[in-house]
Design a binder for these strands. Structure first.
Lengths: 131, 131
DNA sequence: CTCGTAGTTCGACCGCCGACGTACCATCTG
DNA sequence: CAGATGGTACGTCGGCGGTCGAACTACGAG
């Protein structure tokens, strides 16, 4: 489902591969919290935050299969946490910091800080790969 | 499961009905986020926060059956978000503000603020009962 | 054109989760 | 004691969610 209907009238990318993002007004707090409550997805978000810039799916190493990986990135995108754009053969992911900050001020940062703290407490078991 | 083993040496309450809470060090961020990502539970937390003091289960009106209600309160307790104590025939619930603040500074407040904001945006559909 | 890399899609599996009703227990009030 | 009130325990049901493998598509490099 969600077959991303797009008329040929708008072709932002040469190849024309685009995926649907919720716009700012559609982002729901419960969905964001749910997205962040999964260890894998939280790890993705932390990695993206640590880099500061966008990263390809394959650059965020997750101990799961490719299809599961795709699944998690989609959940993050559909909940409004990240945005995804195709760049050549790979897909770049970026945190939607501005949107999240506008909707839920301080939320993302406190979650990230909380994750870091907990990581420290538990001795880094939570598993964020440090560059 | 989790049959709350407690020796008779400590009897804090006359009747002796107690329930197990995770202590501060055991509270996990993912569990908290998961607990808060459910609309019903978020509603409970917001109601407790709005009151400032503890409230009985029956005082937090939820559009679900009694047993479902019990379930949600248990999830909140086991994730470390609330504490529960028996008081006479009813069970009092309180936010574990101090513990959450110590572990994840600012997190609870930003979630609560985010919920309020979203409530405003969506015209109060989210359904927090205002006293 | 061919190949390799990067993601996607599909179907399946299985566990968990939210919801319910019923039966039950604990406490207070008469 | 009896009854009422407030929660719990248990079993169940339906659906969602995380995981996988296999087949497939899209793009870039030779």
């Amino acid at each position: 489902m969600i077959p991303q209907q797009l008329p040929a009238t708008a072709a932002p990318v040469p190849g024309g591969r685009v995926c649907a993002h919720p716009d700012r007004a559609e982002i729901r707090l419960e969905a964001v919290l749910h997205a962040l409550s999964d260890p894998m997805r939280l790890r993705v978000v932390r990695t993206l935050a640590a880099r500061g810039v966008e990263a390809a799916c394959s650059e965020v190493e997750l101990p799961v299969s490719k299809s599961t990986c795709t699944h998690h990135f989609r959940v993050l995108r559909e909940s409004g946490v990240i945005s995804q754009t195709y760049r050549g053969t790979s897909k770049m992911n970026a945190l939607r910091r501005a949107d999240l900050e506008a909707l839920f001020p301080g939320l993302l940062d406190s979650v990230l800080a909380a994750a870091d703290r907990q990581d420290g407490r538990l001795g880094g078991v939570t598993g964020l790969v440090r560059a």
